[in-house]
Design a protein around this nucleic acid. Sequence first.
DNA 1: GATGAATGAGGTTTCATTCAT
DNA 2: AATGAATGAAACCTCATTCAT
Lengths: 207, 207, 207, 207
Amino acid sequence: MANQKLPRRERERLRQRQEMLATALDLFSQKGYHNVSMQEIAAQAEFATGTLYKFFQNKEDLYKALVLEQCDKFEEAITRAIEKPEDEVEKLRNYIRVKGDRFRRNLPFVRLFLAESRGVSFNIKAGLNDELRKRYYDFLEKIASIFDSGMKNRRFKEIADPYYLAVALDSVLDASLLLWLDAPERFPYPEDPDTILNIFFKGLIPS
Amino acid sequence: MANQKLPRRERERLRQRQEMLATALDLFSQKGYHNVSMQEIAAQAEFATGTLYKFFQNKEDLYKALVLEQCDKFEEAITRAIEKPEDEVEKLRNYIRVKGDRFRRNLPFVRLFLAESRGVSFNIKAGLNDELRKRYYDFLEKIASIFDSGMKNRRFKEIADPYYLAVALDSVLDASLLLWLDAPERFPYPEDPDTILNIFFKGLIPS
Amino acid sequence: MANQKLPRRERERLRQRQEMLATALDLFSQKGYHNVSMQEIAAQAEFATGTLYKFFQNKEDLYKALVLEQCDKFEEAITRAIEKPEDEVEKLRNYIRVKGDRFRRNLPFVRLFLAESRGVSFNIKAGLNDELRKRYYDFLEKIASIFDSGMKNRRFKEIADPYYLAVALDSVLDASLLLWLDAPERFPYPEDPDTILNIFFKGLIPS
Amino acid sequence: MANQKLPRRERERLRQRQEMLATALDLFSQKGYHNVSMQEIAAQAEFATGTLYKFFQNKEDLYKALVLEQCDKFEEAITRAIEKPEDEVEKLRNYIRVKGDRFRRNLPFVRLFLAESRGVSFNIKAGLNDELRKRYYDFLEKIASIFDSGMKNRRFKEIADPYYLAVALDSVLDASLLLWLDAPERFPYPEDPDTILNIFFKGLIPS
DNA sequence: GATGAATGAGGTTTCATTCAT
DNA sequence: AATGAATGAAACCTCATTCAT
């Protein structure tokens, strides 16, 4: 990996940064942004308070770095998942599988966002700042392009704007995962991607 | 209205309470719960700090009252909207129309949740969340019962669990409205409910 | 009684004042001066806050009135007790009996003073303000005059300044009563005044 | 002294703590616990408010530390004073001398209790009181043991329970010192311990 | 470079007092 | 005269940030 080529000093710094971010994620997700102090993060991560400020300009900055990094990983994973297969339906299935996987594996991160928003059923993307919002829109574009290509192929009917379909699919997926998180017994994890896809594939009204 | 029958003193108190809640909603939605001080609310509402505490035990209490009141109104409106028509499709259309209307008319409230959804203050809503979650699930039940009745009527195909369809429809509706809020020109307001319903009604895959 | 001659309005006012003072004594003795609010006193006494301020200029004033009134009663009782008998020893016995009685019957008042001072064995008179201090000194004078008269009679030896003896007797009495209050089983109530007097009457060192 | 062996940082911290306690004692004794704010203590001691809270969890904690420390010193001094001489009478004289000395040298501390005795803040001392009361009783036990030993030696007559005599002596001593503090000209400081002891040694009634 | 003690502004909340009704 | 809602100053305490070591 590229990291190995970095000078030792640089690698050490990166490792420390990761340590800090991981601790912060842990604490933020347990207590919420405003109920975690910088001293608490520093203590838990076993650094001095001042050291935190060598890596991040301020608390907000630390928070942003944390979120952006998680989103990076997330985006990367999804992008890889929809690059491989040719088949549009398979791409969508992969997307659902990978998003679900990451969701399950990053519950602290998910909780960080959800605490507030679930009450009225807003989902993860709510409240993202401009940077994140732009990235989310770009990400939706990738999903939309699957629908687009499917429509061009005549594999999909043109029932709505592809971008709009992407939004719909993503939000339904979010909602499913949140339900599962909230009450796993009542709402089982959608193991089979088709559970979700079918909502879009099988029209509800008999023709 | 019944209010007119209340003694004048009582009416006055209610008016003040509304004033406080409205101001708080305004400020919370602009800056987020933790970035608004009680002093600020009091000043903006033109009351003394202490007066706020005559009406609400503490900041959290004020917040809860605010949220619960808004949810009450919202729930009531939706419930009325889906009671009237017999036709299931028309019920769904009404639901979409009314939810959209209330969304548009209560943007400060909507923003309150967006502003908050940065992982702020878990504990604040510790109690609130449970209450709200239950209410949300109960609300979904009402939507689900529309799908259920439609399936029993053979107006709808049984493509998924009715409750699950309710979640899907609600989340897609939320997502659409948020998109519109974010970028009204790019994502026009879904004036026609069928724009959203069609996603569920017309299967995407040609048969 | 003289009260009956007062105009009804005036009598009513006095009754209200007593009500307020009694409630205040109750609360102060339970929680301490600073932990009782004027609204609390008003509510408990079933008056409006403002009414309290018609009777007492402010909280401090209410407190002073409370203490002075209790001291008045106390002084009066003691004075009566040492007026009657001719015999100096009997006067002292009466004084001890009556002080003990009032102590027992006014535990709330006693507690009001004691809460703080017992820890280092200061007694009731500690912390009294100038007015009260003067009254306390005057009261001691009365006790001192008993010793004085006893010495003149040759009933008592002149082992110390009479005033000083008064102080000593009073402080020993206070201490005994406090011990009893603190741990009634361990330190029984000095039912027989001679228990205390003997300390002064029987020299400790064998001659 | 052991202190000199502590690392410099540690010594510095101790010095600061002492500074804070001394300032707090000063202010508390002048105005009483509830009339001194943490800000005031911090300002007077030339620290920031927050620094106070690094040393003491809260105001109550600061107060407790203050009182306990003073009591420790006091107890230690008295204990030393009554350990040395064999002679019981000399022990009592030493006790009176040392208690008087410490009283005179710690007037702020003495005043702290006088100032407080207005029934302030029961709860604050709920815990403190128990602790202090126990210590006071233990201390009395030490004085009592002097009387006890004197009685066993036949140096003292058995005119009362030794513990009870201890209480009496201590309370008379307190009263004398308070009188002197109140009106030094009128009540001269009992330089000679026998002034007080005689009250107990010479029976008042001629035999 | 790392440390963590010190800072002090700012938050929530209480309550003595006033004054319009 | 009595009321009690309204006031707002001031208390306690936290914590993001800095800087001397």
